[in-house]
């Protein structure tokens, strides 16, 4: 899956996160995470994000995340929503998203 257009998902509100995706000219995934709880949960957030991207099979795009202390389930949902929007995918295989 490749990001083919700029897209975002989520909000800046507490317990949520904003995910922005941008196409890259080459097959490379650039993940940038900012979080209010970075020093405490930074690694965990990164793990959840990377696992979610891998599950979707993302191979190209920049993913910038602005986390406001969201739960893992919200992180998964927002990352998926942004990627699917940016990759212009609307037929989902739900069994691959859990």
């Amino acid at each position: 899956m490749k990001i083919i257009k700029e897209a975002l998902a989520g909000t800046l509100e507490s317990s949520d996160l904003l995910v922005k995706v941008t196409p890259l000219p080459e097959d490379r995934v650039d993940v940038v995470i900012q979080s209010e709880v970075m020093h405490q949960f930074g690694e965990q957030i990164r793990q959840v994000v990377l696992a979610t991207l891998q599950q979707l099979g993302l191979i190209s795009g920049q993913v910038v995340i602005e986390d406001k202390g969201a739960l893992d389930c919200a992180i998964r949902a927002r990352v998926q929503a942004a990627i699917l929007r940016g990759a212009a995918v609307d037929q989902l295989d739900w069994s691959k998203l859990s």
């Binding site: 389930c73 998964r76 949902a77």
Partner: peptide
């Protein structure tokens, strides 16, 4: 609609 569906999908599994 799409984002809310994903949020609820994951919340239900929390």
């Amino acid at each position: 609609k799409d984002a809310a569906r994903l949020l609820v999908f994951h919340a239900l599994q929390n």
